[in-house]
Design a protein around this nucleic acid. Sequence first.
RNA 1: GGAGGAUUAGCUCAGCGGGAGAGCGCCUGCCUUACAAGCAGGAUGUCACAAGUUCAAUCCUUGUAUCCUCCACCA
Length: 884
Amino acid sequence: MKAVELSKSYNPKDFEQRIYDQWLENKAFSPDKDGKEHFTVVMPPPNVTGILHMGHALNNTLQDIIIRYKRMKGYRTLWVPGTDHAGIATQNVVERQLAREGKRRQDLGREKFIERTWQVKDKHHEIITSQLRKMGCSCDWDHERFTMDEGLSKAVREAFVTLYERGLIYKGQYLVNYCPKCGTALADDEVEYENMPGKLYDVRYPYADGSGYITVATTRPETMFGDVAVAVNPEDERYTAVVGKELLLPLTDRKIKIIADSFVDKEFGTGMVKITPAHDPNDWECGRRHNLEAINLLNPDGTLNENVPEKYRGLDPVAARRLVVEDLKEGGYLVKETDHAHDVGHCYRCHTVVEPYLSDQWFVSMKGMAQKALKALSDGDIVFYPKRWENTYIHWMENIRDWCISRQLWWGHRIPVWYCKDCGKMIVSRTDVTECPDCGSHNLEQDPDVLDTWFSSWLWPFSTLGWPEKTADLDTFFPTDTLVSAYDIIFFWISRMIMASEEFMGRAPFKDIVITGLVRDKQGRKMSKSLGNGIDPIEVIDLYGADAMKFTLCYLAAQGQDVQIDMDSFKMGSRFANKIWNATRFLLMNAEGRNLVPVTADRLNVMDKWIYTRFNAAVTAIDKAMDSYRFNDAAQTVYSFFWNDFCDWYVEAAKQRLMHGSDEEKDLSISIMIDLLEKSMRLMHPFLSFVTEEIYQKLPGTDGLLISKSWPEADLDFVFVKEEALAGHLQEAVRIVRAARSQLGIGPEKRFSVVIRPAEGFEASDLFEDQKALMASFMGASEVIVDRTASADVSQAYPSGAQGYEVFCFVKEAIDVDAEIRKLEAEIAKAEKSLEGTMKKLNNPQFVSNAKSEAIEKERSKKAEFEEKISQSREHIALLRKLS
RNA sequence: GGAGGAUUAGCUCAGCGGGAGAGCGCCUGCCUUACAAGCAGGAUGUCACAAGUUCAAUCCUUGUAUCCUCCACCA
């Protein structure tokens, strides 16, 4: 045959782009119409605010590996790609742009602002999808979705209106987390708490009747203008007498009462708490229990409003606090200030301090949905990998609170609610409303707010497949199978998808939930834009290639543990890809002019049988690893099979036959290796997609694309347990001689003869005899003699050995006798120590009666081994002594 | 306050109830007609600490220490 010649070095840039285009042209990512079962993965949609980072690379690598594996296994695989409009985050990006131009969003107006945001979306979308292509993601672009495209917008409305009709969505005035900078409400889990230094102020509130005063402790004195009561614990005997008395609120002329409420901690501060319902969640609850008014002190921009005395109006809370403290001090109200570190909520997008803020918002009632979501887990409909995340999920679901879904933003899905400005009617509708159904007025106004971003992404597993329409896709590919995500969005996204799916589809959206770790830098810090410690996947691809990146990430992705990497980490994948390239290059060179023949079991020698056995073991191990999402195990198996077994041992051994064999032997040898290479490409394709595809297409006898070929299922006809063990002995003998050579400082150019003396009944004696030539070449020996009777003059040689045989290297002149004797003595000491441990076990009657029989058997063989080692070494010492 | 994770070679990390592993780094020798991004050989560990369970513990249990993450509360 005429073989293709590979370029001298591995250069992924030469083919990665071309291969990806080829996959696209051949529609290789489309679900195969004839497959057996479906297998669906939906990609967690990246935000269109930025570009993909290493975390995305890890996620998408694992998804791609799963998808490619399942595709080769014959499933109808669909991987749905897409992006998320990312409400606040994207709006912030645009607002920052505007700020640089000295403008605010109000200067543009809603329509123009949204238009501009779409441009930002388009730009980032372009970058993100090109990154995914460069990574080699085999997602079906025909199924790509965006959370704000037409179909998904329809799904959002359907979900909103349906929930409203089911009484699960309501509107009301509540205390919500509010970011003054973003100008919008936030959900509870969008607030990040950070411990900050602060002060605790003890403030005197005088009794209204002038009979003295009480002292309250507060960290936020500026909110005192919203105080409507002071609370004490009903069981606090210190204060039972004063409950009900009136106080005069300092700096104002307002009177408030002392009330009793059990939420007050007697131990904290003075045991007296000022109640400010509009500015503290606990106070809000307390106020509701006691029917107290809530006085809102804040404007939407976070400054103090007309409900505070004039001199404080318009100030931001920090400035107001300073002034209030000053005035309290002056009025003699401030008793003391103490340092008090406490957690302060910050906006998860812009990191501004979040204020509790009283406002009209829309909420989803969550308790009922959480119950169903919990049941999905307990029924085994969903399974977390690793399992420990189930606790996190359960805890969150059991403590769930209603979800604030309205956002005072412009970028997002407009809330599908209209208000009639004439009769005041509220209309919740799936379609746009232009006429009031009650009074017929056309004077309608849509709710100005948009929905939380997650209100669209929680529908992702079915909205992307066409819901609420009954589409063929939905019918075929839903429910999806595996979701791969990092743990930081279990609450935001995963939990809510499960709830939405249970609510709207009546079942879980996916079965397996694979939680990956976070990607960190070498200092263990999370990679982030602000720290500037992120690694751009494209940089990695440019330097090492996509396969190097994929393989390295997979190799490091152990069981949801965080991975710490830097640019150099990817060398490992790069070296491996290079190794594959070069092994192929060598084999193709040797295939030149040869006839490829069918490989049948009866024509195989012991090394052939060994490598086929190893191959099948690798297949089995990878199947097992993939079934439990142990990606690193799979990657390690691939690596050690191809590099250590195939290249280092098998191909090296085959060189003998290739160089010195008959034509027939050469044909057989190269045929076997090409066969194994072809199978290896299939085995490795999920992990190193580009280089395996490129090579596969150049192998003789292949046609079509590797991506669409079948997985190399384990072949029991090519598993040879006995030969595997025999080949192991051969390798060991080779290692012994190589080690001796290295230790004695004998260069590779120096040849010497080797005598192997097998013990009686040693199982590999015949093999050694048969494979003398091969062993000699591995050992660099001038000749190998297998001599059962030790007729050679062994006393002139360097002695060594293993269980079952001894090895004598005829290199008398190189031996430092004293050093070698010391070494052997050390080995004897070590073996004696091991023997002691083994004997302790074997002499222990409880071990013999309780331990598993394999364990006992193993100890017995260890005993024999150690004993042989000791006696062998003693003999060798004696031999060495004769030399000096 | 609650929950979870980590602690194994110089570094990054696998692993496992029965003789301690990988990659990188390091040392020695090799450009052996695929690959120096390579080949061969080698050194390095009280598997955090302490108790317990077990015939047997790096692995299971409990406690301790250090580090990290999440949740809740914080007047």
